[in-house]
Amino acid sequence: MSGIDARVLTISPDRPFRASITTFGALAWSGFRRYSTYRQATIAGSFTNIVFGFLRCYVLLAVAAGAVGNRPGGYDATQLVTYVWVGQGLLAVVGMWGWTDLADRIRTGDIASDLLRPVPPLVSYLAADLGRALHAVLTRFIGPLLAGVVFFELYRPHRPQTVPLFAISALLAVIGSFGCRYLVNATAYWLHDARGVQMLWTLGSGVLAGLSFPLRLLPEWAVATLWVATPLPGLLQTPLDVLVERDEPVTQVGLVALQAVWAVVLLRLAHVVQRRAERKLVVQGG
């Protein structure tokens, strides 16, 4: 099959690699530009994230105060506070919720316009999503982080590799989240109305990615199962654990590697689903 490949950087085997990078970059820029036009949404979103940051922060601190040895799940108070505030910022970067572009376009038939371009939809949506994430890093990530710095004491990483590893982990979290969302949206190819699935995803992902509470509070077996059998902890919990140095360095690298494996699996799966869908796709509307 020519022309379609799930690998991120190969837009089309017929075309030189450099040119494909430029195309990918331009599409990413379109995602960035698009979100930069939603200024009010950016401000409102940051505000909400900060408000919920305070709520979550005080709840977790109360839990910590009541826990044995003051270390619930193996975090001390500064680590917990950092987990919450960086998590509130990262949530917007990872963008787990509220993305229904693909499902909407399938439902209305506008997906036809995506299919009429020489770049496979999975690739162009991924590029645009990375652009969106970059925009969120520069805007939505900052607010909660500042709030954390101003009102609490945040954890300072001790190991030199922590911050770069966090960056890689966050990038993999964005890709993993994109893969999940793409699959959730792609159910619209079969269901025509993906809202039920979206709802399930919104409810499930918040809890199982470690937003509601750090998953390390769960029993050992549950933690192991979640990490290996689902991509969800990799969407939020892993990068935060990396940043607050929750585990030994080797374990941290292992967790990030697991994220990478999941990212590849999810993109591959999305690619297969997209191909299946295209074969039976009925583009709606005259």
């Binding site: 022309g3 316009s113 770049v119």
Partner: peptide
């Protein structure tokens, strides 16, 4: 995808 490079399409309604 290969065809897309060589054709131009307007669907007036989208």
């Amino acid at each position: 995808t290969r065809l897309a490079l060589r054709i131009g399409v307007v669907f007036g309604q989208r």
